[in-house]
Design a protein around this nucleic acid. Sequence first.
DNA 1: GCCGCTACTTAGGAAACCCTCA
DNA 2: TGAGGGTTTCCTAAGTAGCGGC
Length: 729
Amino acid sequence: MSGDHFLNENQIDCGSRVNDSHKHKEKYKEHKHKDHKKDKEREKSKHNNDYKDSSDKKHRDKEKEKMRHKDGSTDKHKDKHKESGKRKRLNLRMVKSKRRRKMALAALCMERDEDDVDFKPKKIKTEDDKKAKKRKLEDSKTKTKGKNKKEVADGKKKPKKEPEEKWKWWEEERYTDGVKWKFLEHKGPVFAPPYEPLPSRVKFYYDGKHMKLSPEAEEVATFFAKMLEHEYTTKDIFRKNFFKDWRKEMNAEEKSIITDLKKCDFTEMAEYFKAQSEARKAMSKEEKLKIKEENERLLQEYGFCIMDNHKERIANFRIEPPGLFRGRGDHPKMGMLKRRIRPQDIIVNCSKDSKHPVPPPGTKWKEVRHDNKVTWLVSWTENIQGSIKYIMLNPSSRIKGEKDWQKYETARRLKKCVDRIRNQYREDWKSKEMRIRQRAVALYFIDKLALRAGNEKEEGETADTVGCCSLRVEHIKLYPEKDGQEYVVEFDFLGKDSIRYYNQVPVEKRVFKNLQLFMENKESDDDLFDRLNTSVLNKHLQELMDGLTAKVFRTYNASITLQQQLKELTTADDNIPAKILSYNRANRAVAILCNHQRAPPKTFEKSMQNLQTKIDAKKDQLSDAKRELKSAKADAKVRKDEKTKKAVETKKKAVQRIEEQLMKLEVQATDREENKQIALGTSKLNYLDPRISVAWCKKWGIPIEKIYNKTQREKFAWAIDMADDDYEF
DNA sequence: GCCGCTACTTAGGAAACCCTCA
DNA sequence: TGAGGGTTTCCTAAGTAGCGGC
């Protein structure tokens, strides 16, 4: 089958952001740990078989039964009975919603009156008591078993009180027809603190002479000074854009004097900010606590909203402060001034019957809107690209969780028809129509290489990056034969965030011939797929499966790869650290597939060295312990008394313990080395159906805390609750 | 079918936090 | 107890994709 993924390590080898000198460009080293090679080979061969397993096993998930409401997009087309049922439910919900509104108001009043920090959302619908009790018992078991043991036992860490009963929104019905909420109340955004002028001792020099800047010009100058050590300030575009925008903030006199950025001396300012940051670090415990408490107060006041009777966490309640725009890669607008957002720039969204957020004294909102077909609470338009920014809810909220769940359900639906779709695009490679051939080849790449769709971008407005549909002739090279393989395509382009995608892929002959055809008589900067764009592609995909878009392939292929890799790599006899290494390797396979890269941590080499020192010390310790054991054994052979026998046992245990510790350290080293340039978080958070991980944990008795941290557990609460050990993606 | 606009997800880096170990 | 370093959280840029109007 053609559908194997090309998980090419070259992707990681060469994948650095353009112009990012801090990123290592060295080859992804073949590392020393003996089993790794084997695993990699296994990984590769696995990927070649990826698609063989994709036929639906018709596994009936228990979790499915729990789901009363599947993917909303399919529901739309279900029969009339369901429609009338829906209507009834809708009526019911309207009644409920009135009640909710009352309760929500009451909840909010209560909060204001009593400043109730430990707010407990009212449970609307609960599972039956037996089940709940069982779950609670299990939860508490895992908690004491896992790393929380320490937190509970020694009381070092504050046992943060979590509400006893978490709202299980996934057991409730969803809204239909685009309604996102019925009641929404919040306190609006937190604005950036006003500019504090520099103390007079901190001076700015132009051409070697001290110059007192107007507050407006000074503020913008501090933005530059704060970035003085950053590579950005060495880039021409950044400097040019900054200087142009800075001059706009200067008064006439300043404008006439300051004409050359090279003559500006920001060093005193930079030193001042550095000293401030040092001072912050050196603050006393009490001072730090005070700040922490103030932050907590702000969070409690502005960090939550009431949505349909539930208190939900807001993701970003602070307005972005002014500063210099940090575009990624070769962004033509980097360095431009991101202006301060004021209340009159803000559109507030809340329900009519809620207590509307109050703008700061003497100001007004741009608009107060009551649009319950959207999920945002606050929006404003930023001045760099003219795009809209939003304040939205936290990933743990119902509104985000539902959407996330739905995303994975769509990907699971793709699993059921992916063979048909693959057969179709293979047929389409032979089409008489160029546009169909192009569409089919592009889809093949999206499916096989997990490329992004590649929307068109406005030239000169952003960095020059591409996705599949926007690939240009210059981004691929064709080799009829390379390194012993036939029909090799070499991809080399900058993708999202200007991260380089480099891969050498053997493709089927027909794909290769098609690519030759698409490239005929074209210049290097011409579009490879000139008869295709994302909207055409997605329209076609929509016809193949309801809700199918290019993006779904990435989710599907990421999740199916994780599931298959976990099956492949997990060994029943392994201990927990070894199993976790397997999990991370499975996760890593996905990250490589999706080209999720990171800059190697600045301290990488050093931390590896430290770890190696620890390993060496442990090895010495082990040989000492073994020697002691040997002599104890010899002693016991001669004396044959209880005391020496006991000594042998003790020594044996010591050897075992040290061996285990050594193994742990070695596993840690392997994991870290393999992870040098790969970011696991993005795929874990956005592409991997969390139920696969939850099921894996349950199957192998791995505490979920080993896989997901607190925030991740909150985001995936729905999956943790609903997936059993036999869940199949 | 193209364009502009809007809403939302995905993304890597920086900053803050916190644990470990000397 | 404080430095060092790993982990988590925050920040916001940069994508995808749908919709309505022409």
